[in-house]
């Protein structure tokens, strides 16, 4: 790598970097900063000349318990989904990384993360077909079981959780797997050679050594789940009102953009707080 010396180099560097970063600035960083500005307006400037600065939107968040309650509900949803993803995904990563070898492992790993890269809306939609009353799951279970079951899972919190776990589970598996497979086989052999059994190795070596990866996965699940709105809308029905859906409403139904901006900005603050607090872990996981 070259230290910048000549002016020619500097010009080339700027020419190569600025298009990408200017684009990111215009499309991401300026909008995010602008959101703070719009969140303290009474009305949008483009709608007319009658606008002024106000803290009303933030005051509303503090005084009307609806918003704080919904934010809390979304955080709880995030926590639930994250915990389930860890409980299901970590053992799976463990099996993939430590017991399966060679080509089979590569293929299985690819199979696990492939849905993650496919269309999330369509995957949520597919759950709607499976979970709906009289849907495939119910019919299937009734065909197999001797007694009748009526699941009524659709439009419940359970449905939302199932859909979100399905959406984000591969994150936890991906990050845990990368951390687990980076552990030197000799370390495990060394532990066995001095008498450690499976559980000791898991508890004292594999888990602590892969913890950064696991926690990174947890953060990567938690953050988008807190900001989710499409999944609760489709699978939650009337039960699916969350902080994210309220923000959506401000922009597409109620058209109170300043309030939407304020709510979005509060969510952004929460997300940035979480990311900052966990950034040492994320850095350690080297993602």
């Amino acid at each position: 790598m070259a230290e910048i010396t000549a002016t020619g180099d500097r010009r080339r560097l700027i020419a190569m970097l600025s298009p990408a970063y200017l684009w990111l600035t215009v499309a991401v960083f300026l909008p995010l900063s602008a959101m703070l500005f719009f969140s303290v307006l009474t009305a949008l400037p483009q709608d007319g000349p009658d606008w002024s600065l106000t803290l009303q939107n933030y005051r509303l968040f503090l005084t009307d318990p609806v918003y704080a309650t919904l934010l809390w509900k979304s955080l709880q949803l995030g926590l639930t989904v994250t915990v389930i993803c860890i409980l299901i995904g970590y053992p799976c990563a463990l099996v993939l990384a430590r017991t399966i070898r060679g080509r089979a492992r590569e293929t299985l790993f690819l199979l696990v993360i492939l849905p993650f890269w496919s269309n999330s809306l369509v995957r949520i939609f597919s759950w709607a077909i499976v979970l709906r009353g009289n849907g495939v799951l119910e019919l299937g279970l009734n065909a197999v079981l001797p007694f009748d079951v009526s699941l009524n899972l659709m439009f419940t919190t359970h449905a939302v959780v199932i859909g979100l776990v399905h959406s984000y589970l591969p994150y936890v598996i991906l990050t845990s797997y990368l951390a687990l497979q980076a552990i030197d086989d000799d370390i495990i052999d060394a532990a066995r050679s001095i008498g450690a059994g499976t559980l000791t190795i898991l508890w004292r070596l594999l888990l602590p050594l892969s913890l950064p990866g696991l926690l990174a996965g947890a953060v990567l699940v938690f953050v988008p789940v807190v900001g989710s709105f499409m999944e609760p809308r489709i699978l939650g029905g009337r039960m699916g009102t969350y902080y994210g859906t309220v923000i959506e409403d401000q922009f597409v139904a109620v058209y109170n953009w300043p309030l939407g901006a304020a709510l979005s900005f509060i969510l952004l603050a929460v997300v940035l707080l979480i990311l900052t607090l966990t950034s040492p872990i994320l850095r350690k996981a080297r993602l």
Binding site: L30, A34, L44, Q46, G227, F229, F251, L268
Partner: peptide, 29 residues
């Protein structure tokens, strides 16, 4: 810093990025 700046578009929920873009793009016409 430049490398770190790549993460907000990935890590911040798209709901926030999307609504922010909407407001900003309207503001600039």
């Amino acid at each position: 810093v430049l490398q770190l700046l790549l993460f907000p578009p990935i890590a911040i929920p798209w709901l926030i990025t999307g609504t922010a873009m909407l407001i900003f793009f309207f503001a600039i016409g």
